[in-house]
Amino acid sequence: MTKQALVFLSNGCEETEAVTTIDLLTRAGINVTYASITEDRQIECSRGVTILAQKVFSEVNNLDFDVIILPGGLKGAENFRDSQQLIEKLKQAHQAGNIIAAICASPAMVLQHHNLFPDAYMTGYPETRDAFKHWKSDRVYFDAQNRVITSQGPATSIDFALKIIEILLDKKAAAQVAAQLVLPQGIASYQ
Score class of each variant (00 low, 15 high):
residue 72 G to Q: 11
residue 23 D to Q: 09
residue 28 A to Q: 03
residue 101 A to L: 08
residue 45 C to P: 06
residue 57 F to K: 06
residue 65 F to D: 08
residue 75 K to G: 00
residue 52 L to S: 08
residue 28 A to V: 04
residue 30 I to W: 12
residue 83 S to V: 04
residue 55 K to E: 11
residue 12 G to M: 09
residue 44 E to F: 02
residue 54 Q to K: 15
residue 76 G to C: 10
residue 91 K to V: 07
residue 10 S to F: 04
residue 103 I to L: 02
residue 108 A to R: 03
residue 77 A to S: 15
residue 73 G to L: 04
residue 45 C to L: 02
residue 34 Y to V: 01
residue 106 S to C: 07
residue 65 F to V: 03
residue 51 I to L: 15
residue 114 H to W: 13
residue 27 R to I: 08
residue 110 V to C: 08
residue 116 L to I: 10
residue 58 S to A: 11
residue 90 L to Q: 08
residue 90 L to T: 05
residue 99 I to E: 00
residue 50 T to V: 15
residue 100 I to G: 01
residue 38 T to G: 03
residue 99 I to M: 02
residue 45 C to A: 14
residue 32 V to R: 07
residue 42 Q to T: 13
residue 91 K to H: 02
residue 71 P to L: 02
residue 84 Q to E: 15
residue 71 P to V: 01
residue 97 G to M: 00
residue 16 T to N: 14
residue 72 G to F: 13
residue 25 L to V: 03
residue 18 A to I: 12
residue 36 S to K: 10
residue 52 L to N: 11
residue 57 F to E: 08
residue 105 A to C: 06
residue 21 T to N: 14
residue 94 H to E: 00
residue 85 Q to N: 14
residue 103 I to M: 04
residue 47 R to G: 10
residue 99 I to V: 10
residue 11 N to C: 10
residue 63 L to F: 07
residue 98 N to G: 05
residue 113 H to V: 06
residue 56 V to C: 13
residue 115 N to E: 09
residue 95 Q to K: 13
residue 115 N to H: 09
residue 43 I to C: 07
residue 51 I to W: 12
residue 57 F to P: 08
residue 35 A to Q: 12
residue 60 V to W: 04
residue 106 S to F: 03
residue 89 K to S: 02
residue 106 S to E: 06
residue 99 I to H: 02
residue 56 V to M: 03
residue 48 G to V: 11
residue 77 A to P: 05
residue 83 S to K: 05
residue 95 Q to R: 11
residue 66 D to T: 07
residue 74 L to A: 01
residue 98 N to T: 05
residue 33 T to E: 12
residue 30 I to C: 12
residue 105 A to Y: 04
residue 29 G to L: 10
residue 15 E to T: 12
residue 33 T to S: 14
residue 64 D to C: 01
residue 43 I to H: 06
residue 93 A to P: 08
residue 6 L to M: 02
residue 49 V to F: 15
residue 83 S to N: 13
residue 100 I to N: 01
residue 62 N to D: 15
residue 13 C to G: 04
residue 79 N to F: 07
residue 48 G to T: 09
residue 54 Q to D: 15
residue 114 H to I: 01
residue 13 C to L: 14
residue 78 E to W: 00
residue 34 Y to H: 15
residue 116 L to C: 08
residue 27 R to M: 13
